[in-house]
Design a binder for these strands. Structure first.
Lengths: 337, 337
DNA sequence: CTGAAAGCGCTTACAG
DNA sequence: CTGAAAGCGCTTACAG
């Protein structure tokens, strides 16, 4: 194994100079820096991680806690894990994955053994024991999501309430007076997931403000449930003319298939907005307007805040990322009755 | 921070005794072991990870490389990551997650910096650059999956060929002469995923051996594709009386829905086997026989082999886990014509 | 059965 | 701008 001593010898300098040349923590003559770099390349030197951790009190590892509950497959979770790992790498950080059974125990363990410099908490519940733990842990931590009690926490998330309002406003502005939000499976709301109720409640509250007739329905994973739900809506006395999806890709494509089968024109007879999807909706038939959930941005910001905490200190806060509206032509003015 | 010196002082022993008491690497008087353990508990001591790595030349971390390609959502991947993490913890190991862009670069990096003791490779392609890298890396590594060239590698996987044969045999033994395998999206086969072709080819080869009329079709993710595909099959001159699914949950439920809509009795008129699902099929209507893919077992064995490699040496090998058949009543004898 | 000590490979004050 | 040296907190021969 090649060590810093080998590099120092080849470059003809001391090991401290090698260390500083690599870290940039003190100024180095251009020529010696180049010699060090050449030696590093020649020997293919890579600092020993354990030694670096021990001497430098920095591990360059984040713990990422994502329960990955066996029952909830949501691919969106994978997207957040991926985005967090990618963002971490831009700061030379790796991610250690902590799952369900290691949720709190694992966090305590990796924190007190100084295995990680910080914690990123994913899939935050409204009441989440990891939030309480993190509050007590005195280690840089960022939650991606907003629990009910945010005291003392640093949280980053898409502003799901703004998403709900934006979707409602878009439809209402186009003249729609009867709208429906088709959401996630009921279990997601029951389990205490933080963002689906935020979106739902803001949607309904805005509708009430504007005097719009709005309804909400949870939709299960089986395609049959979306079909049944949508069929019931279409067959009602006053069917909605605007629909907002806050469900997964399969549900949305199933709904579009049913609408096509029944000859309901989108947006002619039914305007649709896809709220907070992690997937593209421009390939749907027809393409759907969407207010995207952007894991890369949210996770990037979360990692940035964690890095800032490691460097200095960051005030507790809830940072909500404002949503943006992508028009793909699936909302049209309500035709005159 | 509490260190081993604190524990030693409180327990009234030397730090080496503390270390040995904790690792069990030399025999300790029962009474001193108890005093050490009491001190550890009292101080809530946890060995410093960096120091442990440096002095012990063991990091207790596995690198898990799972590309998590943004385009392939397959929830099964999440199940394997989860199962690997869980299995690792049973040996006191944590997992560092390496994704797509860090596939080979990341593996080299964490290996040469001695950040990890071993590598678990997930989502193996038939020709996988990670396999070549791992071969050259001289670090304990296990592939979950079987690339085309397995020379010098330790691989563990479900025996997908046996799965294909088992499914065919079950249907053929029940008298079915025309059978169809409905597989994954075409892109999965094109991308070079290792197991779908293995299952498919063994299925077709066994059918040829036994003189069964067998066909294969890739099925895309959109429910409409499964519907169209299945409708075409049902409307054919000689429709299959036996079907094997090697596709995701949504596709399978969609297919069952269509069969119900068209009044095709399962297993009365159509026998079905679900091949290599990670999800339960007993809740389907009707419940389906399955030959399950068991990530917990496969990943458990992979981790075990990695641990064995760390402890000593393990010969290169391909370990194929024999499949088991779960009968839920979805295969019936072919009714007399 | 136990202890004193060397050493793992770095980082970072401390000097010059 | 650079070097010699202390020290990070463990593990593990080496002694007894």
């Amino acid at each position: 194994m090649t060590t810093i001593h080998d590099v120092a010898r080849v470059a003809g300098v001391s090991i401290s100079t090698v260390s500083y040349a690599l870290s940039g923590k003190r100024s180095i003559t251009e020529s010696t820096r180049r010699r060090v770099e050449a030696a590093v390349r020649e020997l293919d030197y890579r600092p020993n991680a354990g030694a670096r951790m021990l001497a430098g009190r920095r591990t360059y590892i984040f713990a990422v806690t994502e329960p990955l509950r066996a029952d909830t497959y949501e691919p969106a979770h994978m997207a957040f894990v991926l985005a967090t790992a990618t963002a971490a790498r831009t700061y030379d950080y790796d991610v250690l994955l902590l799952t369900q059974d290691e949720a709190t125990g694992g966090l305590s363990r990796v924190t007190s053994s100084r295995l990680v410099d910080g914690i990123i908490v994913l899939d935050v519940l409204r009441e989440d024991e990891r939030a309480d733990l993190v509050r007590s842990l005195d280690i840089p931590s960022v939650l991606i999501g907003v629990p009910d009690d945010t005291a003392g926490l640093v949280c980053v998330d898409l502003d799901f309430e703004a998403v709900g309002r934006m979707a409602l406003d878009r439809l209402a502005d186009a003249g729609h007076r009867t709208v429906t939000l088709l959401g996630q499976p009921q279990a997601v709301y029951d389990r205490g997931s933080n963002f689906p109720p935020r979106l739902r409640d803001a949607f309904l509250a805005r509708a009430a403000e504007r005097g719009i007739d709005a309804a909400f329905h949870a939709v299960e994973r089986e395609p049959s449930d979306m079909r049944a739900r949508l069929a019931t809506l279409l067959d009602a006395d006053t069917p909605p003319t605007g629909v907002v999806f806050h469900c997964e890709e399969q549900q949305q494509t199933t709904a579009l298939e049913l609408l096509a089968e029944r000859g309901v024109a989108v947006p002619g007879e039914m305007s649709i907005v896809s709220a907070a999807p992690t997937f593209p909706t421009s390939g749907f038939r027809p393409p759907l307007d969407r207010i995207p959930l952007v894991p890369a941005y949210t996770c990037g910001r979360a990692v940035e805040l964690a890095i800032n905490q490691i460097a200095g200190s960051v005030e507790p806060r809830v940072e909500l990322v404002p949503p943006t509206y992508e028009d793909h032509g699936s909302v049209a003015p309500l035709p005159a009755a």
